[in-house]
């Protein structure tokens, strides 16, 4: 895009905070080929230790899936992140998930976006491992994995750093 060549001389870098507490794993640990094969986008997975998703940066809700098991959040740079709680959890039809935001809402880093009940997810036979992936990779120049293993606390530390296209 020609218009993008003007007015933007420096690339934008965004630090993405852990949106939930738990153990950081590679996407390849996700028992779903679409995520494990990075077909949904690059990122990380977190095995949750508590049922709470917080905002990974200041931004807006690009889309909350109506069953509340997944959310796409957008940073003002245009970066879009998909947070998908558990695997095959669409089948729960919203049971065990409580959203604190709606599509279009603004939020600050650390605000609670969704609460979920791991017991309900696991009772349904779904893994609760949560992939966190870039939803618009075409606009991201580079994605750096700051944390690739060990435990993290929601909203307390950056796990990914995305550099946007200029």
């Amino acid at each position: 895009m020609l218009s993008k060549l003007f007015g933007k001389t420096k690339s934008k870098t965004i630090e993405i905070l852990a949106p939930l507490s738990g153990e950081v794993l590679a996407l390849t640990a996700v028992p779903d080929e679409a995520f494990a094969g990075k077909h949904m986008g690059d990122g990380i997975a977190i095995e949750p230790s508590e049922g709470k998703i917080v905002a990974p940066f200041d931004g807006t809700v690009a889309h909350l899936i109506h069953t509340n098991h997944a959310i796409i959040v957008e940073h003002n740079s245009g970066l879009q992140l998909l947070i998908h709680i558990g695997i095959n959890t669409v089948a729960l039809n919203g049971n065990g998930f409580r959203a604190h935001v709606s599509s279009g809402d603004s939020f600050q880093a650390g605000d609670i976006l969704i609460e979920f009940d791991r017991a309900v997810i696991e009772a349904a036979g779904c893994p609760s491992i949560t992939p966190i992936v870039i939803a618009n990779e075409d606009e991201v120049k580079q994605l750096e994995h700051i944390v690739s293993s060990g435990s993290v606390t929601a909203g307390a530390e950056a796990v990914l750093r995305a550099e946007m296209n200029e």
């Binding site: 949904m40 986008g41 690009a62 889309h63 109506h66 796409i72 879009q80 998909l82 939803a135 618009n136």
Partner: peptide, 12 residues
Amino acid sequence: KSLVHVISVGAK
């Protein structure tokens, strides 16, 4: 071609 747009359709 946009994942967010396609999910935003909310097709049931």
